[in-house]
Design a protein around this nucleic acid. Sequence first.
DNA 1: ATAGAAATTAAGTCCAGACAAAACATACGG
DNA 2: CCGTATGTTTTGTCTGGACTTAATTTCTAT
Lengths: 234, 234
Amino acid sequence: MKHAAKRASYQAIKADVLQRIRDNIWPPGTLLPGEIELAEEFQCARATVNRAMRELADEGVIDRKRKSGTRVKTAPTRQAKFTIPLIRLEIENAGKNYRYAMVHRQKQTAPRWLCGRLALHSAAQVLHLQCIHYADESPFQYEARWINLSAVPKAESESFEKIGPNEWLINHVPFTEAELTFSAKSATKDIAAMMSLSEGASLLTAERTTWLSDAPVTYAQLYFHQSYKMTTRI
Amino acid sequence: MKHAAKRASYQAIKADVLQRIRDNIWPPGTLLPGEIELAEEFQCARATVNRAMRELADEGVIDRKRKSGTRVKTAPTRQAKFTIPLIRLEIENAGKNYRYAMVHRQKQTAPRWLCGRLALHSAAQVLHLQCIHYADESPFQYEARWINLSAVPKAESESFEKIGPNEWLINHVPFTEAELTFSAKSATKDIAAMMSLSEGASLLTAERTTWLSDAPVTYAQLYFHQSYKMTTRI
DNA sequence: ATAGAAATTAAGTCCAGACAAAACATACGG
DNA sequence: CCGTATGTTTTGTCTGGACTTAATTTCTAT
């Protein structure tokens, strides 16, 4: 009885299906009509319906299984997407002046905790760096980084005086996998001093471990300034 | 000269292209061959190449523009995807016992700051709730929430004694858009007391504003326990 | 009754071809 | 010299058809 819109594009189908889910016409758990049926309703090819439904599945709105069909997810797993830009670009895009300073650089044997985290053997050599990223001369991010020199030997010949390790690594070393962890940490005395904060200030902290096809490349702790907020729309 | 793999699926093409980018055969900024050319190389239809390239573009590896062609991104904007599960499920999945407690419930006129944030008129009525989510009897998350009663009138008749406002809203009110902000905040005296923490402890905090087709639905502040880390692999 | 084989179903992939739309290039008229 | 019309290129979308694959049901022989 439904007067289907003619020549619907896959986006229109997506929107329409989403609307029906939102309007509770198809409540959570409902088994949706098959692709052929929907294709008839929307007056389009099955491939077009397939694309619409596939994208809805990718976005976590519906579940699809061969033979079983398509169901509206009961607990829709909305997923937030954060783009992780270069800190320099983030500062510059905010209309501020970016400045970078390295405060420490040392080749050393990997400490125990790092060996565990990166699965390094106990005598592995790493390059330890500490640096600060400024926005308009006020400290914006403190970066503590360890680079696995056996995976990235050419890092040893880079001074990191002019370019930050994060930016250098992105430009010189691709990666296949990364683990990213966000948490809130209190500023230690050292970090507070470097970032012109009071000791114990709450800092949004990102920890990042990066691999290049199973070889551990680098581990970094990024401490953001108190004022920093990470925002996304979903 | 390249002996292309025959009958490559779109996934194989994706993997192959990605490999060439990783191997620096196609360094950042390179203009890739057009879809027709790639289709010939991979011995497949253009639609198959199109799908592979479209997905790579979605993943932020390449940039595509009509007429201009496809280029390897210079600053690959890797994007982290966080799935935002129900707090109850997160606790239960960690093998812990979930308990919920409401500590405050009051219908009130929206405070000024909330009117601004949700674009409410000054006399708007909201339901203010404060509650705590426990994992194995230790406080895990403190939730402060304001629900716009003109958008969700039926919230007024819900006691929220047994079910948390977040879970109730997900089950009863769909949403079309949400803004999610993460930051680190220091625990106030009140929050510290409720979460059995010392005052000033660093807490990962999420703020969430939700709309249902332009109508503001709810604003929430979620304070996670110190130990909480949000992790994702990319 | 039951384990395994066969049929069925619905999504997943692919193709060859077509047209649309955006973005850029070029030519042309004022 | 400039703005507009026209053309070209490349990606974006769609079609109708085919085959593949995973999961489920049904059948069958034990």
